[in-house]
Design a protein around this nucleic acid. Structure first.
Lengths: 254, 254
DNA sequence: GAACACACAATTGTCGACACTTTCCTTGAC
DNA sequence: GTCAAGGAAAGTGTCGACAATTGTGTGTTC
């Protein structure tokens, strides 16, 4: 749910802070966008301590910006569900509780099963063929076992299915959901215990789309996601544990 | 998808511009929030011309605020899908095309059917009883035929069902969707041609929840919403037409 | 020693000013 | 008359400063 028409890529690198030479225009017209990318990264990669208040001044300084664009970015992230805002007290990164994570996955399941059912009814043969081709090619690239690539391919596959529903709103909703669970998925894939089933199920999804078998497709997808939920919950528990261990360790040092 | 913990009510009135007496604190700590409510109102009630750029300075002046909180509000509205933002060109209120409206309704259908299915499985008997009680009471209030009240009750009813799924994320998603189609629903209810079926279907939904009949519940809900879609599309077409007529009339006058 | 009040520090909220972009209008060439 | 170039005008993007609020530590009272 972005409502933005930016060209900015998700993983755009933060460009050099302008402290040194001050060449180039003083306003880059995308400070807010850079701030957004940077902070989002901090959140998605779990680099912020949960429950800790985010200090705007500090954050702005570390990004070499003023508070205005930082605040704008924080606001956006809050309305996308990454941060929680309380008036007069600022922004906090609330780490997803296990239960919240499960809920987000459940929402994902609802949106995806709904959209695949539509896709079975409405998608053009060409569209489905394109998905099949995409998945064929993706299979090759899965073999390299690069977690980032796999994550990207996996998300892209699911988004493409949603897109076959012909409903852009559904696609947007799914993308927004994906962003929120990405950090867990990333770890999940890194650990790498679950590839085989994932892969075959994707193939099955393509098959049932070709057959336009909505019942089978939704059933596979529901299982597919609920399997992932359980795994993701474990992963998150582990990540939170590590975080708290690291946290208490650093506390005891000081 | 708010990520906000504000107390602000939706229809909070804009308080007097502080030009005159300047008593009370110069910062109310909720300028942004007031701006948000005010602008949202303009959008939801269709008081902004579609496609026309929103002038921040002008808007800020008319609200008696500076640009900063206005901008913050605009940003929020953009990420909620009400406005479209383009860098260096600002915010635009894009009226939903008929097709977009249909898509949002479709998303709503997906989310609601998904959540009612969950509710059938998981809701507590007490929760369902409460919904039934709510609907009983609501029926009384429907008789007064106050459009605003009916809209509120209708939304509340559907949100309550979603809440019975026990999934707060689903509820948030639904609320965000509701906000985006509220303006059409408002007109729809004002015209008042559709009440009877709506009411009986709500009763049927309660019944099938009590019977925990997920299949029936989802089927009723799907029909319920798709019926509304068609009606809403007509309403929007009419509203857009009026808008353009009014527009060209005022143009020809000047 | 605990509870409260008070001042002071840290942090958020808003503002006005200025830098930069886009837009629109004028001017001039063809 | 059409089009392009140039330059004001309008509007957005960012900044630094100050106002208001919240958090914290100190002293006072019981």
């Amino acid at each position: 749910m972005r409502g933005r028409e930016e060209a900015g890529r998700d993983d755009a690198e933060i460009r050099g802070c302008r402290g040194e030479a001050a060449r180039g225009p003083r306003r880059s017209a995308d400070s807010a966008s850079r701030a957004y990318q940077a902070i989002r990264r901090l959140v998605v990669e779990f680099r912020l301590k949960p429950e800790e208040r985010i200090n705007e001044v500090q954050l702005a300084q570390s990004l070499g910006l003023s508070r205005t664009p930082v605040r704008e970015a924080l606001n956006r992230l809050a309305s996308e569900g990454f941060l929680v805002f309380t008036p007069n007290r600022g922004f906090v990164f609330k780490a997803l509780e296990i239960e919240d994570l499960v809920r987000v996955f459940e929402l994902r399941s609802i949106v995806e099963t709904g959209s695949i059912a539509l896709a079975c009814k409405r998608a053009s043969d060409a569209g489905i063929a394109e998905l099949a081709a995409f998945w064929d090619e993706a299979l090759e690239r899965y073999r390299r076992e690069d977690p980032d690539e796999i994550l990207e391919l996996d998300e892209a596959f699911h988004v493409r299915i949603a897109a076959l529903s012909g409903n852009a709103e559904v696609v947007k909703a799914l993308q927004s959901i994906n962003a929120r669970i990405r950090f867990v998925r990333r770890i999940q894939i890194e650990r790498g215990a679950w590839h085989p089933r994932l892969v075959t199920e994707h193939t099955e999804l393509v098959e049932s789309l070709i057959a336009r078998d909505a019942v089978r497709a939704t059933e596979i997808l529901r299982r597919h996601i609920s399997m992932t939920i359980e795994d993701a919950a474990l992963v998150l528990k582990e990540a939170l544990f590590k975080l708290y261990v690291a946290d208490s360790a650093s506390v005891s040092q000081s």
